[in-house]
């Protein structure tokens, strides 16, 4: 029972990342009709926003300590972060410790700006081109972006830990009399994902801007005929989608040390999530994200792997094939979309 609940939690947690990335992908596809293969790269850039802020907060002055030696026998260069000298060691170290949550504020304007630049600078030229062209250009862009990040940060993973107060485990099974411990930061990640997903839905559902965007998604031409500049709103939605992917990346950094390739690791899975959920369907993307996360977790259980060796590596693709064969529009896709 404990193991079963633990895998559900794991699935929800994995699904959070899938859902956030798939949500952004669907926003872009639903509004602009663009299949954005650079979306994983936006997730990665978000993670590196957290790395960058952490490095900025750790900018240090160097003092040589003659009592200690480096590997060549020279006096050791001891680094002290400026922030600790400005605010004192205690406050300074707390600020550094909380660099990942602080990176949320740092990442939002950067990701929105990157989204605008991508959309205006490159992707808008491919609106009327076939999906194959869009995939090629955005995939190429993703490779360029990850090589740029690699140039500046190297290929090695960079540890970016969670704040001390949000590290460790919580016994969340205690309330129901079970012994289920789960990492605190993963619980935070799930709650954060739920908050972001809820905010995006609320924005689209309860604001005039969101209403216009939804109308544009349903019938772009008619909305345009009403004198509304729908292109400008869609550009803003691209920026929002980039920010959602970026924030997913920021909060993911304590879970796995970020590296320049992490976007590609999520890209294919996220597309499968979008296809399973239904191309253009926001609730479908979220639902499929969580469902496939849970399915993947259960497929990794020893009991399942012993019965079907290797199933954990292919389960998501098997589901995608079944969905495409039996319900091409996906779980919650609109009738007619991707069915012809």
């Amino acid at each position: 029972m404990d193991a079963f609940l633990l895998q559900i939690l794991n699935g929800l947690d994995k699904g959070s990342a899938y859902a956030l990335i798939a949500l952004g992908l669907t926003l872009i596809f639903g509004t602009l009709g663009v299949v954005n293969f650079a979306h994983g790269a936006l997730f990665m850039i978000g993670a590196f926003c957290a790395v960058t802020l952490s490095k900025l907060l750790n900018l240090s002055f160097i003092v040589e300590d003659p009592t200690q030696k480096d590997f060549l026998g020279n006096p050791l260069k001891v680094k002290t972060p400026y922030i600790e000298s400005w605010f004192g060691p205690e406050v300074g170290s707390v600020i550094i410790d909380w660099s990942v949550p602080l990176a949320i504020l740092f990442a939002i304007p950067i990701m929105v700006a990157i989204g605008f630049i991508m959309e205006r600078g490159l992707i808008k030229h491919f609106y009327k081109r076939p999906h194959a062209d869009q995939i090629l250009v955005t995939f190429g862009l993703a490779i360029v972006l990850q090589e740029i990040v690699k140039y500046f940060y190297g290929a090695n993973p960079i540890p970016t830990p969670a704040p001390e107060a949000l590290s460790g485990v919580a016994n969340i099974g205690a309330v129901i009399g079970l012994d289920i411990v789960y990492p605190v930061w993963r619980i935070v990640y799930f709650c954060f994902a739920a908050l972001i997903i809820g905010s995006v839905f609320a924005f689209l559902q309860f604001t005039t801007f969101g209403m216009v965007v939804r109308a544009g998604m349903a019938d772009r031409e008619t909305v345009g005929l009403l004198g509304i500049n729908i292109d400008r709103r869609f550009t803003i939605m691209f920026g929002i989608a980039a920010a959602v992917a970026g924030l997913a990346g920021v909060m993911y950094t304590p879970i796995n040390s970020p590296n320049y390739h992490m976007g590609m690791d999520f890209l294919v899975l996220s597309f499968v999530v979008v296809v399973v959920g239904g191309m253009g369907s926001l609730p479908g993307a979220v639902l499929a994200g969580f469902l496939l996360g849970i399915l993947e977790s259960f497929a990794s259980m020893n009991e399942v792997k012993n019965w079907l060796p290797g199933i954990d590596q292919i389960i998501i693709y098997i589901v995608a094939i079944i969905i495409l064969l039996t319900r091409p529009r996906g779980l919650m896709g609109r009738k007619g979309v991707m069915e012809d």
Partner: peptide, 11 residues
């Protein structure tokens, strides 16, 4: 990339 579902059974 995420080994949580392989580590959970270890518990």
């Amino acid at each position: 990339t995420d080994f949580s579902s392989y580590i959970a059974p270890v518990l």
